[in-house]
Design a binder for these strands. Structure first.
Lengths: 210, 210
DNA sequence: AGACCGATCTAGACATTGCTTAGATAGCAC
DNA sequence: GTGCTATCTAAGCAATGTCTAGATCGGTCT
């Protein structure tokens, strides 16, 4: 087994793995977390999963398709994080900023995964289906709708959702570039900093005044 | 000259190129625009510039350092675009939305370059120095400061600038994922769409009410 | 039970990539 | 001219994504 170097899980795995698809996705996430995006090669994933470099091709057409699967899991995890934040909030105002803070925190805690999630969506002319249905995008829109008392026009609702999404994503990326440490200190912590930015964004000012 | 395949500029270039650094950066930008980021290999750049695969290493330590140079030019171009938009606006309100629209347009018109600009900044714990001094970030902050009549506290000014930057960057990336065509049509064009989102972001609401 | 078939996996190879080392070339000072 | 140094090429290394051919095995049909 020349492909079995030091990293193999190596417990006399049978010839047929059983559930290699899932194992590969998990291996990929493990590599992403520990060694960063630049170390995420198909061969490294295969190594980590303890199979030959060609094995993944029986489960994914491409390296890209593997990453798509990883991204899919990422979106699901983000959905869960947002749901949790949403249920924890009291009023609808708190629910919105809570969603924003949870979103940014997710991105900060899973920077490599977050990047893969968006890189996979790129050049597909649409954000993944996770953003529709019960996904994160829909959660945000519903919260906005609820907050406006259901009186917002469909167009305004969509615009407001896009605006909120832009703010969250923009801040999420910004945080991964720059730590803003002095600013955080001056404001007394990260949460205060995030809330401060969202406050300045004054999101939903238009919906409020209507 | 085995490295001279079809793409070479091939006009009996002398052994010493003269200004290979610049030629490489331009070749990289050409490849980015025409073939996308995935085609941007160091070897491809060398091919496009008509030199051997090892030649770039006499001007850039790394592939990363070449990309840094490309990104640097990108930031300069963005600075110029923002300056133009700033000078074109009448009042300070118009100046702000004008900046936002110009920013997003730049990202939409140079998607690959825009991505390189941010990818190079990643994992450096700071946005490039272009964002300071006379750069884009500074332009935005100055405009905000001017708009608030110079009364905003330093912290509020910084928060507002970050917020504006997040909004612009978020919307810029969003546009590259999804076309939002139905929404644009409903609003009567792209500019109206962009302004609509910025309006909903209600940026500077806090500074206004202060 | 035994033969077989398709799914799963490996071996091995290919082109391409980033990068290094060793040597060729040429502009420039003396 | 001689020599120094920056610039460039040639050749090669390890690693990667991907393909083809062949090995292995679980489950089905008789």
């Amino acid at each position: 087994m020349p492909w079995m170097t030091q990293t193999a899980t190596s417990e006399a795995r049978p010839y047929h793995h059983g559930d290699l698809s899932r194992a590969l996705v998990e291996a990929a996430r493990r590599i992403l977390e520990t060694e960063g995006p630049s170390a995420l090669s198909l061969r490294a994933v295969a190594r980590e999963a303890g199979v030959s470099p060609a094995a993944p091709y029986h489960h994914f057409k491409d390296k890209g398709e593997l990453l798509d699967a990883v991204a899919h899991e990422g979106w699901a995890a983000l959905d869960a994080a947002l749901t949790e934040a949403r249920l924890k909030a009291a009023d609808s105002q708190e629910r919105m900023t809570g969603l924003g803070v949870a979103y940014v925190r997710f991105a900060r805690d899973n920077p490599a995964l977050y990047r893969v999630m968006y890189d996979c969506s790129r050049d597909k002319d649409a954000l993944p289906e996770q953003m529709k249905e019960e996904g994160a995008y829909c959660q945000v829109r519903n919260t906005i709708d609820e907050r406006s008392g259901g009186t917002a026009s469909p167009i305004d609702l969509e615009l407001a959702t896009i605006a909120a999404w832009c703010a969250g994503h923009g801040l999420a990326e910004m945080i991964s570039f720059k730590q803003f440490d002095p600013l955080k200190e001056a404001l007394g912590g990260e949460e205060a900093f995030l809330r401060g930015v969202f406050e300045h964004l004054g999101m939903f000012a238009k919906l409020d005044q209507a």
